[in-house]
Simulated scan of single mutants.
Amino acid sequence: MPYTVWGLALAQALLTTGNILLVAVSALIGKQLASHPALVTAPVASQFLGLILATLPAAFLMQKLGRKKVFIIGNVFGIIGAAVAIQALLISSLLLFTLGIFLTGIAIGIAQQYRFAALDECAKDVHPKAISVVMSGGVLAAFIGPNLAIWSQQWFAQNVYVGAFVGLAGLYVLALILIIVLPLKSNTVNAAAAQTDVRSYGALFQQPLLVAATVSGAIGYGVMVFLMTATPLAMHHHDYAFPDIAVVIQWHVLGMFVPSFFTGHLIKRHGLKPIILLGCALLIISAIINLFGQSYYHFFTALLLLGVGWNFTFIGATQLVSLAYRPQEKGKVQGMNDFLVFSTAAVASLFAGQTVETIGWMWVNLISLPLVAMAMLLIAKSRTQA
């Protein structure tokens, strides 16, 4: 495996650490600053808004400017976003905090291309393993992120959450330095090639491969975000301390990324559809566990399985996408796939807080069940073969 893939995995680890910080504190900060329950997860939703608005431009810019330059731009957005969030916390402004999280969302959206960049760095026969290696960077983040969220509460006495965003800015600086020194392939496409036999979106989405990838990626990611965003709020309602919430998030993230060490092998051995369907089944089991109780172990087990289910659906979907385009269509397909996947996640994050605050935690899980079942049905009926 080329060392550039491992470098991308480390960059992914740094940015995922930042994402975990945001997951652990953003909804709680929203609850502290919001004047209405519907606004509690507005910062989380703004993060996904920034993410989805970045996906299509980032994919196209990478074909014009190369991946490295666009990755650098993304990390700069992250640094600026963390600085804005710090100022917002100091003056207790939900609007300014939401803006800061929006800017970090742009950084996260651009960083989603790390997994596609790994495909450019290695031969096609090791693509599943390359995706898994990059995603496995999240294992390091699972240990650093929640602990950083806890430790940083002691850094600034006037506001327990300011330290988290100082740490976030530091992570983006480290990722920026790493991307600068990493010799990534350019990924640029010349103008003549870009205009040759590029299919329309209508023609592209007639492919069962691409439909299956988009459905499994969007619903798998959306349900994961819906339950993950609502869980800290549900635990807070049941008077769990922040360190308990952080540990549950930590194991959730371990569930998201530890399987990456063998997901690629499982896909090669059993095929894409069985692994994606297994991931969907785990998402359903997670929601069912939440319906049976609100003890610490219910939250812990459910979120752990939620992470594993997401891993199988997301890595499987990424591999499906890589089979559904010609070289000159790379930016178009990758960008649109991420746009649809993260648009779904943004909607899920927006309604997660409002749902748990208004109609309750049980309904958060009940709503998830038919969505995942629909994804399973569509994937099972597709004629995709791998």
Rank of each mutant, 00 (worst) to 15 (best):
S322T: 15
L323G: 05
M224R: 10
M1T: 14
F292T: 04
Q112Y: 10
H238Y: 09
G222P: 01
T263R: 12
I249Y: 04
D244E: 11
G217W: 03
V189Q: 06
L209H: 14
G66Q: 09
F97H: 13
A9H: 11
G138F: 01
A9V: 04
Y221L: 08
V23T: 13
P327D: 01
I29C: 07
A193K: 15
T358Q: 10
N365G: 04
D120Y: 05
L28D: 02
Y172N: 13
A54K: 12
V225N: 14
L323H: 15
V166F: 10
G30D: 12
P327Y: 01
F312R: 02
R115L: 11
T344D: 11
P274Q: 07
Q354A: 15
T188W: 03
S26F: 04
T104H: 13
V134I: 00
G217L: 04
D338L: 01
A85T: 09
F226K: 07
I275D: 04
F299I: 07
Q385P: 01
I52L: 12
F143P: 00
I284G: 03
Y3K: 00
P183E: 05
G316P: 05
N365R: 08
S216T: 13
V321L: 00
Q294L: 11
G105I: 07
A157R: 09
A287F: 02
V23K: 03
G7F: 05
G78F: 06
N337Y: 15
V181A: 02
A281M: 11
V372Y: 10
